[in-house]
């Protein structure tokens, strides 16, 4: 049942889609029927796949750099009061300014290639990663720190053996959000200016009224995003196996 449920939901959505197409008699270049999209997906897969690889690479590299920059910022903010004062506004601004508004600038500065998309994904996940890890680092059980102090622990081992492990559940929440929103960053970047990637392919197909190709690319993108999210989720659950799950999603 655990694996069957998502499949049933998916089939249900496709059935609804087909019903809408049949009932409204909408033109295929407005909303193609599911079978036509599936056909295109198979026939044009050689076109879609290289673009999907590029988008996947952008997303994964964006998550990696965003996680690195975010965790480093959180550590700096935890340990150096001046860093806290200077980085906190940066953190808030990074979230307050819409990435959509920055996308054209990033493309202008960093070019049409991978870098601007990675920057976009990094920017979009910087806030959830930094905020969650910073919060976790600040909330270490004071009892653990007392214990470390009576054991003559150094600042370094207190950080690596106590504070970081204790902050991992909070960081994990941030990383789950990051995995869910990172594709948005990459796709926006591709829309604003690129020569490859699923976002580029979708724009291109849209411009030529190849709506079936657009839907096929969208299906691949959704699959990518879902696979990525669950890969991150499973990896985090494995790493944090000591954490009690009081509300397990799989019963």
């Amino acid at each position: 049942m655990k694996f069957a449920r998502p499949v049933i939901v998916l089939i249900g959505l496709i059935v609804v889609w087909q019903i809408v197409v049949t009932l409204t008699g909408v033109q295929p270049f407005i909303l193609p029927p599911p079978m036509k999209v599936a056909e295109t997906l198979v026939h044009r897969f050689d076109v879609i796949w290289p673009h999907a690889q590029i988008t996947a690479l952008e997303i994964v590299l964006g998550i990696v750099t965003g996680t690195l920059v975010g965790t480093m910022s959180a550590l700096l903010m935890t340990y150096f009061a001046p860093a806290r004062r200077w980085l906190l506004p940066v953190l808030v601004i990074s979230q307050a300014v819409p990435v959509f508004a920055l996308a054209p600038l990033l493309v202008l500065w960093l070019g049409y290639g991978l870098i601007s998309k990675i920057a976009m994904a990094t920017l979009i996940i910087y806030f959830p990663v930094t905020a969650s890890f910073f919060d976790g680092l600040r909330r270490t059980d004071p009892g653990f720190l007392d214990l470390a102090r009576t054991m003559n622990a150094s600042r370094w081992t207190t950080l690596t053996r106590i504070r970081i492990p204790a902050a991992m559940p909070a960081l994990a929440s941030g990383l789950r959000v990051a995995a869910a929103v990172a594709p948005i960053g990459a796709i926006i970047g591709e829309w604003v200016g690129s020569s490859a990637g699923l976002g580029y392919l979708m724009l291109h197909a849209n411009g030529r009224m190849q709506i079936d190709l657009l839907f096929a690319a969208l299906a691949v993108l959704a699959t990518l995003a879902i696979v990525l999210y669950f890969a991150v989720d499973i990896a985090l659950k494995r790493a944090l196996n000591w954490l009690p799950d009081t509300n397990p999603s799989s019963d």
Binding site: D141, G143, F144, D146, L147, P165, A166, W242
Partner: peptide
């Protein structure tokens, strides 16, 4: 201490 303070991980 009163709490065992065992690291849960």
């Amino acid at each position: 201490a009163q709490q065992d303070l065992l690291l849960p991980w």
